[in-house]
Structure formats: C-alpha cells, structure tokens
Design a protein around this nucleic acid. Structure first.
Lengths: 242, 242
DNA sequence: GGGGAGAGATGCCGC
DNA sequence: GCGGCATTTCTCCCC
C-alpha cells in the first residue's frame, strides 16, 4: 500500500498516535549502536514523541526512541525513510521501509493511572503492620526510610533493643539483595555507633548461594509473600484482613 | 466501529498479529495484581501469544501478558471483553472494551536479529585487547569468567603479580557496581588463598558516593567508555582500530 | 537533573 | 528449569 507522507508527518506533528505495519530495517545510534536487518515490524509513534519498533514476537520493543523525540517520514526513491532524533539525548534512529502494510492515525485520550497491589512497598507496609512476620519480638520504627540511613525497607528493634534492618524482595532474593542488606547494616553501625545490628531478608524465596552468603554474614531469612489485596478479596468475598 | 469477533479470534488462533485501538479498562492478576481505569489504548496480540497494552504515552507497556498466553474476545452486552490467560504462569488479564476505534489483522514474518555495539561485553573485549586502559602494567588473563570465580568481566595480574579484578559498566557506576566488585574480590581471595587482590571499576563515570565507597575499600576507578564501532567507522571513514 | 532502587521488569546465556 | 546478570533497561521518588 501507499503511505500519504504529508498526512503522516502532519499527524505526528499534531500529537496523534500513528501505527505503521511495514517491512523495514532499523539503524540506531546513541547510548549504544545497533542495526536490525530487514523484516516485518509494527512501528508506533505516540503523542509524546515516543517511537516503538516491535517485532512479531516478544514483550520488549526491539528498537525505540524516548519521549520527546522528533520524527519525519521521507520518500527516498522506491523506499520510505523515517528519521527520528532526540537532540538533548544525542540519539538518532533511521528506519528504511521497503513495504508498508497498513497505517493507522488515531487521536487517543488517556489519563488512567495503574493501581497495583503486591509491590515491595506493600510488603514493607504489611510487615510494619504485622511485625511478627519477622520475629515475635520485632518492634518496627519506620518503613521506606529515605534519609541518612539509606533506603531501608523496614527498620526497628528486637526484644533486646538491638537494631534490626529488614530488606524486602517481592521475588526471589539474590546476591544483590544480600549486598544491599549488608551495605545498609554497615551504614547503620557507622551512623549510630553501635556494633550489633541484625539483618533480615524477607522474600518469598532465596537462592541457595545467596542464603549461604546471608548466613555467613550472620543474617537471617524470613519467608514472606507480597500481599495481594484483590486476590484475598476475591477468594474470601470478605473485607481485607489489614 | 464494530469488531468482527469470530474473525478476531480466528486471526489470534492462527498466529496472526492483531492490533486493536480502543477505549478500555484492564484488570490483571498473577505475580501481582492491578487495575487500570478506562482510557484510550492500543492493544497488540503477537503471533507468539504476547499481549501488550500501550497507553498513548511512555515507552513501556502499561499491562501485558507473556509469550504463550491464550486470548479470546467475547461480546458481553454492549461491551467487548478480551480474556487472556497463561495457565503455566497462573496469570490472568481481562480487558473491558467500551469502544473500538480500529482493528488491524496482519501476517508478519521476521527473523531479524539485532546487532548491537557498545555493550558491557564490548567494553571487556576492548579492555582485554587494550589492557593499558586499566594500567600500564595490567596483564589480562581472561574475560567474562563464568566459572568458580564468578562472573568477572576482566581478570588478570599487575606488574607485581597481584591479582586484578575489573568490573565494567557501560553507564554510570553505582553502589551496586561497587558491591559486585567487592563480592568478586572476596571470592577470588578465598578461592586463591591470597590476601592482596586489586579491584578496578571501568566505566564512563561513577557517582560521588560510589567513588567514596570504592576508595574506602582500596579500589580504583578508571574512566573507560564503551566502544562504538559504527560511530568510529562513520566518523573516520576508515577501518576499525581494533 | 542526578542519585538510588524497584519492576508483574525482560532477555540472554550457562548449567 | 533455575541462577546470575546486563539492559539503548524504564519508571518512580527524593534530593
């Protein structure tokens, strides 16, 4: 099919959403560089200047340009060429289009915000409200501490007034999670001038290697699953437990 | 506009790519749970069963289902409902469509593989070939060591036969990068039974806090940029330097 | 705008 | 499949 080049550029300039299915190759230069040989793809240009190149498989875009990019479609002999640039980010992308399959120009309005349940923040809230998930004598002081101590998920005392640092992970805890916990513990020891600080990782599971590293450093693991409020509601048909 | 429901389902079943622009709300339940209120979105169902929900802004899909998911469109009174499920992953998604703007059914063929330059792997290759980027006396032994020593980017000796561990980052090095380096150094000390192991982070830049942590642990920073082969070629119009 | 960290991260590779 | 880790990560939040 033929593409109406002026109409395409006008739509992009006027903040419409444009979807183009085509056979194309893609060159990118910016933070890195890449070349994608010819094949069938879906191109999406959004009203905020985002460009996405999707192959007919996979979840992630194979090429893209970020919000605020400028785009211009040109006729170049037999082929169409879409040039995209983001000058502040020094990123450039060129798409050589050998065949166009379909074009859609849309005016879309959407101010919807995603409501999400089951995040790491929800886990730390749950632990703060139910400290026995960590230990019978755990007394939480704060959660999501974004101050001098770093980004500690839950922070408190045990029954002997020892400081306790809790790091939550909504998925399997790995080396990185243990590193984070140890780093926060070290900072707390330095800033509070105390020797004994307890460390706990709260997560649904932990890899065997990470668990060994955790125990080698005198820390503990507690199996905790991220709360799913909607699921609780659906399964019980009652009000939420917390 | 009206959607031909049987044709839609038939296209999805037969591995075609389907693009639907519509006003809809989205409910998800699986690894977490979410609800997205009504608004204009683009839905893409790919031949591998991937489903993407894109708002008219932003790079990332706001909701999605992974490869291998099953999809079925139903007429429910005035509304259309798209149910998606991935039984192995126990994930479920429901889209309530109040208005459809456009439908595209496409047969796409694409086997193109992305060629990328400027990755962390390219950095470690470059350092292996140009060890003076780390220091005049650096003698690299191996790169991308995926064995008992861990995933060390570049590993070698200095002029005094001290072991040297190099961790590369293609972007700004942060706390996480320093944690990784220290973890690898510790493992090398344990496994080789030596005390003195040098640590170097090679990256374009490093945050001030991470640099302090690096120096506090007796390690060093080397400013190294990821190689961009295409850019070199373009700017010099000669063959590559390495 | 940079720093720091989560994400329903995704994708890749190795075991 | 899991583990470990990079990513043109993206996104959010706070300074």
């Amino acid at each position: 099919m033929d593409v109406d080049v002026p109409a395409f550029n006008s739509a992009v300039s006027n903040g419409k959403t444009v979807i183009l299915a085509c056979c194309c190759s893609v060159s990118y230069s910016g933070r890195a560089e890449s070349f994608l040989p010819e094949g069938d793809r879906i191109l999406i240009i959004k009203s905020d200047g985002t460009l996405l190149v999707h192959q007919p498989h996979g979840s992630a875009a194979i090429n893209y340009m970020k919000e605020g990019s400028a785009h211009r479609l040109l006729q170049n002999g037999e082929k169409l060429v879409l040039n995209s640039s983001n000058l502040p980010l020094k990123e450039f992308l060129t798409i050589e289009i050998s065949r166009a399959y379909s074009v859609q120009i849309l005016t879309l309005a959407d101010s919807g915000k995603l409501q999400l349940s089951g995040s790491e923040r929800d886990m730390s809230d749950m632990i703060f409200a139910n400290p026995s998930l960590i230990s019978p004598d755990f007394k939480p002081l704060s959660r999501e501490e974004h101050t001098k101590y770093g980004f500690i998920d839950v922070f408190g005392y045990d029954g002997n007034n020892n400081l306790v640092v809790v790091e939550c992970k909504r998925y399997a805890a790995d080396f990185n999670a243990v590193d984070q916990l140890l780093r926060y513990m070290k900072k707390v020891r330095q800033l509070r001038g105390v020797e004994k600080v307890k460390g706990v990782i709260a997560a649904p599971k932990i890899s065997a290697n990470a668990l060994k590293m955790l125990h080698d450093n005198g820390c503990e693991f507690r199996e905790v699953n991220p709360p799913k409020y909607l699921e609780r509601y659906d399964s019980s048909q009652k009000r939420l437990n917390f």
